[in-house]
């Protein structure tokens, strides 16, 4: 064979391009695959943390202001709402991640 054969180079370029496209198309899997239970636990902990946080803040404020148990009750409900909000956010983020994959 004398000199480089341009046709073979073209064929090689086409092959390379195809290979690259295939690599791009391959669904990129994240490092971690989450199970349904894991997702549920994640959201559950968010709710529980909200309730605990609300209780702690309410209890501390009650002790400080001497309004027991008004603020404890108020912050219990606020904390539950905040926890639910966080859980909602967590699930939303996980779903977006799932969509991207």
């Amino acid at each position: 064979m004398s000199g480089p054969d341009p046709e073979r180079f073209d064929a090689f370029d086409a092959r390379l391009k195809k290979a690259r496209e295939q690599r791009q198309e391959a669904p990129e899997r994240g490092a971690v695959d989450r199970s349904g239970m894991g997702t549920g636990l994640q959201a559950g902990i968010d709710v529980v943390a909200g309730v605990i946080g609300g209780l702690l803040i309410g209890w501390a404020l009650d002790r400080w202001l001497g309004t027991s148990p008004v603020l404890l009750v108020v912050f219990l409900f606020l904390g539950a709402a905040a926890g639910t909000r966080n859980a909602f956010r967590t699930l939303q983020r996980l779903m977006e991640e799932g969509d991207r994959r």
Partner: peptide, 21 residues
Amino acid sequence: VPVEILSYCVRPISLSVRLFC
């Protein structure tokens, strides 16, 4: 707004409880 502030403030609790649990 109170719910949002509270949900911001309880983040460290959920973050730490998750790992520890």
